[in-house]
Design a binder for these strands. Sequence first.
DNA 1: AGATATTTGTTCGTATGTATT
DNA 2: TAATACATACGAACAAATATC
Lengths: 271, 271
Amino acid sequence: MSEPDSITPPPTAGAPRRKRTDEIVDAIKRMIVEHGLGPGDRLPQERDLIAQFAAGKGTVREALKALEVQGLISVRTGPGGGAFIERMSEGRAMSLLSNFLFAKNLSIANIYEMRKVLEPQVAASATPHIDEAGLNRLEAIIRIYDHEPADATERWNQRMAELDFHGVVAEYSDNPILAFTCRFLQRLLKDLTIAQDIYVQPEPVSRESGIRHQRELIAAMRRRDAKAASAILTEHMAEAEQHMLTLQAKLMDRFLTEDAAPARSRKRRIA
Amino acid sequence: MSEPDSITPPPTAGAPRRKRTDEIVDAIKRMIVEHGLGPGDRLPQERDLIAQFAAGKGTVREALKALEVQGLISVRTGPGGGAFIERMSEGRAMSLLSNFLFAKNLSIANIYEMRKVLEPQVAASATPHIDEAGLNRLEAIIRIYDHEPADATERWNQRMAELDFHGVVAEYSDNPILAFTCRFLQRLLKDLTIAQDIYVQPEPVSRESGIRHQRELIAAMRRRDAKAASAILTEHMAEAEQHMLTLQAKLMDRFLTEDAAPARSRKRRIA
DNA sequence: AGATATTTGTTCGTATGTATT
DNA sequence: TAATACATACGAACAAATATC
């Protein structure tokens, strides 16, 4: 069991009295689990909740807003409207997590330290489940970057597609938390401004070698060889990490030799 | 001063008009980044925000509630009170993430698939940074479970302490996202009801072997041998995973041979 | 410790917006 | 188009918390 839920407002004297809004949030959460409500099910209407909790409209609305931000419900107007149970989207979960990591100043190295062990795992766990449609999607993505980019924009699109390749692989994993983590790391790489600077550099990753690895991966998955898939990605990640780190070093160096005051803030930001 | 909101709501016909509350949430977020506000800094008071946005009190309060749930601000009453910039706590980030994974039905195997590659990494990254105080904390934790438990409660406490051991190791990692992920996986293990059932079984993990690994880890960290630390944890995790999976299998088997309708819901729940 | 001032927290009546029929 | 059912928004009055003197 975790901690703060259910049990009645602790009469602990010193503690500041529980705020009405938070009480209602918890009460609604309990209502959800007790009634076994699932996605699509509707909560009582605003005015019924007001009656049920003997609370003011504003208070109930704040509680519903809190639940909405947590991705637990969504609210619709109109007849038949009201608060409906939702399952949180992956995108919202990632945004919320980004808020947490915002202050933590992540580096490329931090992210690749995880990627290099997780991507091989996720590829192995996807291997038994990916179907021909998935493999075709992967091949289509490779075609986005199997040639020299015409300009900086295309180069950037190619880098994003390269990350999407791994995102599609993760989609077929049967391990939800592993897949989520890998996809989150990919999003982080898209968002980190340092990474963005790197992506407009020429050749962030050796093209032929990267594509070769990815084609080998597709072949390995096609013959359901999870072990090979994992090994290929281990090599691929080591290579990618190497490229990113040397590029980051070069980039840093370039900044250090520039004018003392770079125009825009260099603070790394996420989301 | 300048302008930036003013631009009228995108005349996109089909799109449902932007809700006032969400506009204010975004406006405040922009205010935070534009003014470069950091933890501890104060936002304008409620009544000033009401004036500034020409909005109703309830609307502004809903917006502040949304920001509060996202962990971006906290609000205090009294003189000098108001909304203050916060950095999201690790605990809140974990709760939010749990909400996302709630519906995903994680298994012990899913979690250990990640733990077995991440715990070695996090130990290696902590090795250069852990100090004598940290090593002493680890030794103190081991003492909680270096002996046979007297009853089921103590057995459960011992299992929790065993997870805390790895949590402390992660604290000393210099990789924020890796450390967070490991600690989150540990929390998941504490919360999964299936795991809870396992923990009250005798000997969820071979005691002597586990403690031996952990003592070896402390020794390796003390001599700053990151490679050894990583190798020890690889072995430790493989062993722990094995124990957990066989215990889970036994547990499942026991349920299958019980009455058809077990008393309480077996739905795995998180948080 | 008590009084007071400041600021958020809660309630309610009313009006407006939006989707369904 | 109109009627209906629902959320969304506003604002005024009052309650509760907390810092300061």
